[in-house]
Design a protein around this nucleic acid. Sequence first.
RNA 1: GGUCCGUUCAUCUAGGGGUUAGGAUACAAGGUUUUCAUCCUUGACACAGGGGUUCGAUUCCCCUACGGACUACCA
Length: 508
Amino acid sequence: MNKQVRVRFAPSPTGPLHIGGVRTALYNYLFAKKHGGDFLLRIEDTDQGRFVPGAEQYIIDSLKWAGIMPDEGVGIGGPHAPYRQSERKEIYRQYAEQLIEDGYAYYAFDTSEELEKLRKELEGSKASNTSYSSHVRGRMRNSLTLPTEEVATRMAAGDPFVIRLKMPENELVKANDMVRERIEVNTSTLDDKVLFKSDGFPTYHLANVVDDHFMEITHVIRGEEWLPSLPLHVLLYRYLGWEDTMPEFAHLPLLLKPDGKGKLSKRDGDRLGFPVFPLQWKDPASGELSTGYRESGYFPEAFINMLAFLGWNPGTEQEIFSVDDLAEHFSIEHVHKAGAKFDFEKAKWFNHQYLIRRNNEELAYEFEKILQSKGITVNFEYLVTVVALVKERVNFVQEMWQQASFFFIAPESYDAEVVKKRWKDNIPSLIADVKGVIRKIEPFTAESFKDSVHHFVEEKQANMGSIMNTLRLSLVGGSFGPDLPVIAEMLGKEEVISRIEKALATIK
RNA sequence: GGUCCGUUCAUCUAGGGGUUAGGAUACAAGGUUUUCAUCCUUGACACAGGGGUUCGAUUCCCCUACGGACUACCA
């Protein structure tokens, strides 16, 4: 039975998508592409209380930026529309009711106070199962304990109720996980999960199973936080009569904090100074702004490549993969079992790798935008040459400014350390002499500049290092940058002379 | 507390009953670059611990430790 592969990414619009979510989406996408299947985006907005305006659009925009385009789903449509669970609300209740009819679920009328009381009592006891379960359901207020008439009366009166799964006692549920293989759990350790809430919405567990079934999902690839509820989901498929078409499951390792322990969170990004979101996000409630990978200068391809390697590897030593390459080589078998600590240094390295592979025109185009924002306009050909000279030295396009600003404007100041180290007492007169030599160079090229300076140094029996480095200091303002003769040629004779004069007049 | 999952260099990871335990990032040293960066070479750095099974265990099993997730009318 070679069914068409169909996978889904099903986030909740409760805030900005964090990079762990993007990775989950990515793995789903890669799996679908690898198998020629479909990747769908479903929005799980069954919790009205946690709904955050803008979060859904943020998810869509993030996926788009990352190049993870769904084949169907919210914002796209498709044969199983709608893909937003709030718009599918009417579908779920009948399945919850069906479970009750078949004896697998029941109505519960317990108030939150009663539930709170139960929780306190159970936590204080030595009970191995401290939840609403088969051990206690017999003494709670539900359709299993209440007389049939009272249940009917309550229902007719519109009393609030939930529908809970009647978790069987002492049954071994066997489930398979593509990453971890066999998982076995005794149902006595599980609880009677709420499937249908008193506000008329299903919980994740019900909605997820119903939707995955009707949307013909073949593989559920999701975060490891769902592993504990896998047995419940398996039971749900079984009780709903869908076990023969139940999808396969793969639970992905979590993304952990770079330092210390625990799941990666927004706070870590703030604390350690790196983005945890793909795109910038402004919290609608607090107005707080969080930066994103896009705004930090990451190429989406580099971001994706970096993310792909957090928990997966190709089994070879290749590390640079385009999205298409990833799709071709991806396999669940190579997903690591343990959580991955996020390594920001490696993320930067990935971006550098993509940056140096980009063609100069494209980079020049990006860099031009930054220059324009600083009020600098410059010949594009010149810019392409500058980019070619500095691209190896930066991780991000915006870093080109600090590496190349001297190509556009004369240094405003001179690196104090370099001045201290190089600008000795004999330098000003030597540099003034070099200036005279430079003035005579014709034509003014990197080659002729180099030859003239060499010749000068020999004649004066001066120290080459001190001349070149002080010239560099004069032209760029510090001890960095590409080959000095090349810089000189780019700048042109007049500019070089003027910068030397400025340095002579300014330093010390 | 309970349930489940996990544990190879600092980090991401490969491997897998017999290996000099491999690669990448970061780090260090040297070379190249008369600067810086790149680049090249080299270096240091790991199988959590204890029991088994076995001729042999880092690899398989058990226990412990540690870490994580879950334990809501949240997903």
